[in-house]
Write a protein that binds this DNA or RNA. Structure first.
Lengths: 346, 346
DNA sequence: CACGACCGGGAGAGCGCTCCCCTGTGCGCG
DNA sequence: CGCGCACAGGGGAGCGCTCTCCCGGTCGTG
């Protein structure tokens, strides 16, 4: 015998007014006599009324919910399905993203629905979820180039905002960082320190962000008389950074500066460097990218290019909100500035 | 001009049947003639119909959504609000939790809503969210003893399941680990290795889990002729583990075995040990707890007590589901077994 | 051959809310 | 003093769905 939850009707009866008036008070709209307002609030208090979300959504056609989607580019093979979520969350990057999104959403009493879309089926589920109005829009974080999700959502005109420019062109809004400038900052810092034999460990080069960090770095080095920069491709993980560094060292023992395309890889780089008996930054200077937790957990703490993840994530949420409220608007993009954070590693 | 989404009515007209029949097909219930079923499916396909979640929820009184709540015990001071989410997500523990929850929910086409409840206001928001039927129940992960949320939910008879036995007694279901047994395993392993001068770094002792790991360890040591075990309290972070170890070492340079109440602290312990010139495991054996990512990222890889987080999280979701479906059931608890994973550190 | 059980399918009543529209009252202004 | 306007508040439709009821037809069975 679960006691029925009180409805607007009940409150209205209790307050001696109509449903409509209670609704007005609850939603704080239009001019309602202060006395009546007080009476209604009293009635709400007494009945313990809580508005029913489903009923409201039904008529407003708004779920007041947004999806936070981490998507990959996998097919339907289920091999890695369970690992995907764990791997994504293990990335320190993710905590800052959630933090930024939650920071924006919370004052609006909204909460993100967490979805992972690493397989075709999962991607279709995301589309279905949005189509049935369970969420009003999606914040997309692609972990791979070639992710078809943005295009799928654009196709259905479902509101969404991406983190980073889509690798596959799609007419969707996104928030990104001035990666080139960030990489330039790193290059200039290394040069200013007097590094002469510089290498870079890139992210997966099919990702636009990785590509731009590389070219930004190369261009700056070239402009300062270093037309060729040693480089190796990593996978944005610490281990990949460590082994890429080992590979580089094998051919070029005299490297004195390294720019890694993210902090995790920079951490791996430091590990390899230590193991090879080199000191950071005395023998080799290391610069990371992101300014995520590994940057200050690392020994020595990493000099890195800061990406204002929280602000970027909040901007994504804001853009999405505007898109949801404003109806069909044309794709927009917001580009944030990178900033060099100098710590001990370079 | 956003084209209206097709409704059941539209599909029914298209298929030449009634709304009720389409509903039956969509929900796969009752006996519907295969021919008609095919016709309806065709009509759904053609119209691109997607059932409206709000309308369904309104009548079924189910949101088909559950909240994943990480709660603290803070008051309304906003000082740390933004950091909370980031700090929680940084814990490797969390990825495994989400992974387990998502693994259970996904086959049911459900997705968790992520909520943080570290302040009084945030906690009230969680209660309100559930009361208005936005979610059918909550999975609670308390980061502090003294968390009032479980009691608040129990008070309102809102379905919820906790991770770990509540520190403040409350009539709610929970899933937990046999911490004592886990600690016993660690103690026995250390003894079997021949450690004679053993210490333990505990978690915050107001947490039942930390308390039980400590007593389980002490009891086993006592039973094997070591009535007194050195101990220091840590905060479940790497840094706290490192400094607790440094403190212990200062007074007792001859320690040859350490049991840390989680992997993060064990990692800190290893760091301090290395810095003091001691080798792990040759000079000092180290055992962690959890078997989370730091365990294998650590050098050397950590021998640790495995906590089957994914299974535990999935069990929580299952328990919650049963509670939601079954109406008012009495609190249940499920206790998982711990398992020793032997790697290089001990 | 008759009667009833059973099953496929339709009609219709809401679920709780918002919002449009209308009525009634108070007040300003001509 | 009367007309009209503005605004507070009520009435009611309807959002899209589920689910109970009911009806008509087809069997099985005595």
């Amino acid at each position: 015998m679960t006691r029925q939850a009180p409805t607007l009707e009940d409150v209205a009866r209790e307050a001696g007014v109509s449903r409509a008036t209670v609704s007005r008070v609850v939603n704080g709209i239009r001019n309602v006599d202060p006395a009546i307002q007080a009476a209604v609030r009293g009635a709400i208090e007494r009945t313990g009324y809580a508005p029913n979300r489903a009923a409201r959504s039904l008529v407003t056609r708004r779920a007041e919910t947004i999806a936070l989607v981490v998507s990959g580019a996998g097919d339907d093979s289920e091999s890695e399905q369970n690992l995907f979520a764990a791997r994504v969350l293990a990335d320190p990057f993710f905590g800052r993203v959630v933090s930024g999104v939650v920071g924006f959403l919370r004052p609006r009493s909204m909460y993100p629905v967490l979805m992972f879309a690493e397989t075709g089926a999962a991607r279709r589920d995301v589309v279905a979820y949005l189509r049935q109005g369970s969420a009003d829009g999606a914040l997309i974080f692609s972990t791979h180039a070639g992710d078809p999700l943005p295009a799928m959502l654009a196709e259905e005109s479902l509101p969404c905002v991406l983190f980073g420019r889509p690798a596959l062109p799609a007419p969707v809004s996104y928030v990104d960082l001035a990666h080139r400038d960030g990489a330039r900052l790193a290059a200039e810092h290394l040069l200013a320190r007097g590094c002469r034999r510089v290498a870079t460990i890139t992210g997966p080069l099919d990702l636009p962000a990785a590509q731009e960090r590389l070219t930004g770095f190369q261009d700056t080095m070239a402009r300062h008389g270093h037309p060729y920069v040693l480089s190796a491709e990593g996978g944005f993980t610490a281990d990949s950074g460590a082994s890429a560094m080992a590979g580089l060292l094998a051919g070029h023992a005299d490297i004195d500066g390294v720019f890694a395309a993210n902090d995790l890889m920079a951490q791996g780089v430091c590990r390899t460097l230590h193991e090879s008996g080199r000191r950071v930054p005395d023998d080799v200077a290391v610069i990371g990218f992101d300014d995520s937790s590994p940057a200050y957990d690392c020994r020595p703490p990493l000099t890195t290019v800061r990406q204002p993840m929280e602000e970027m994530a909040a901007a994504m949420a804001r853009l999405l909100q505007e898109q949801i409220e404003g109806g069909r608007t044309r794709p927009t993009s917001v580009i944030f500035d990178a900033e060099l954070v100098v710590r001990a590693s370079a």
